[in-house]
Amino acid sequence: MTTVDTFSEGRDIRRIREDRTPSVATDYSNPPKGAAGNVARAGDGQPARSRSFSGSALLPFLLPVTLVIFWQVGSSAGFISDRIMPSPVAVVAAFWERLLSGELARDVGVSGARALSGLLIGGSIGFLLGIANGVSKLSEQLTDTTLQMLRTIPHLAMIPLVILWFGIGEEAKLFLTSLGVLFPIYLNTYHGVKNVDRDLLEMGRIYGMSGWSLFRKVIFPGALPSIFVGLRYALGIMWLTLIVSESIAANSGIGYMANTAREFMMTDVVVLALVIYAVLGKLADVIARTLERAALSWNPAYQDQGE
């Protein structure tokens, strides 16, 4: 029987398993060739379709570009006072000046480092708690209720207390940012782990997975879509918290730049700070989305996006 000859050369897997315990590093973040990469591009070689594709790619930028043009025209014609709103050209000039002086790089670097370390600390705590409470009944009973209560407190309401505890230094900013990102990551990780398909968990146990391998092959990948939702939500909170805490007190960072500019009524720099926050926020979101699409390329819901 040709169809099943492939089974007839047997090997003792169990025996090999006893002799050595190498890891089966099955890597789900590395999609199999020909599966994820071959998502058909809309309109490949079809003139009619590719025109509508490029049209739809530019369409979202129509409104902002028009607004900026009107803004510039209004400022140049003197309808908009410089004290209320600087002209776009003035903002670009402020950008250029600070870029050359090196101040911009320093401030963006400092703010970026604050945001990232807050995300790393708060995110890891939230992630670990979410995993622990998702897989362990005991851990869930010990901490879930407490966390659910704490998360209802708006973390920015803690500012007076945080200032009393840490003063107005770096620790205060780090604490607030960490606290802000902790809960969305916790909630979504926990939810993701709790909602992993029971049938797949049972399948994993049938095939002898337990502990770490069950986590690595079934629980974590199953919870990943939800974890990414938490991450993207946390990124929004991260920037928000940073803006607020940098405007309380700081001697470097984008918030500091905006605040000192306000004292000297340099509206162009204030607006520049807003633009930088917007760009950084968008950048973080794009990175998260790219990671998401790469890690979840097995999921049909992520296979046709981005066209």
Binding site: R11, R17, Y207, M209
Partner: peptide, 13 residues
């Protein structure tokens, strides 16, 4: 390869 259980060398699996 999941059917082979854990701890099987990857290439073999």
């Amino acid at each position: 390869a999941v059917g082979l259980g854990d701890g099987v060398p990857k290439a073999f699996g």
